[in-house]
Amino acid sequence: MRHTLYEIWKIARTTAPLIALVGLFSCTVDGCRCTVRVRNQTPYFVHLLTPEEIWLYVAPSEVKALKADEKPAELQALIAPGQGVNAQCATSFACDSSSCEVIELYFENRSLHMRLDSSGCQDEGGSDLD
């Protein structure tokens, strides 16, 4: 009995990381799952809202990883209230963008914008999402 339990424990210990990896980036009947990174390049705390998640008070320079799948979902970003500035923008995001790309939030002319930053990818340039 004790031996059997030990065997089960050994199998579980080996397979758990594999299951976690598959779960992190996997294709199921519902589609592929991945994460899309968003970096707050504004000097303000921002809120990030998607149909699945709410991230409040994302600090300047902070990066958040949003859950995404094949189907485009809307990402709303807004300057958190109480900072003297009201600005928001939205875009859609999905798994099809390369994993090295980051959606950057920046503040210009009292407006909030998003752009794809591909500086972490080779031979790719940034593109504006606005």
Partner: peptide
Amino acid sequence: HRLAGESSGEVTH
């Protein structure tokens, strides 16, 4: 509040 004591933009909360 999360902003208590933080600085953002030109404001210190």
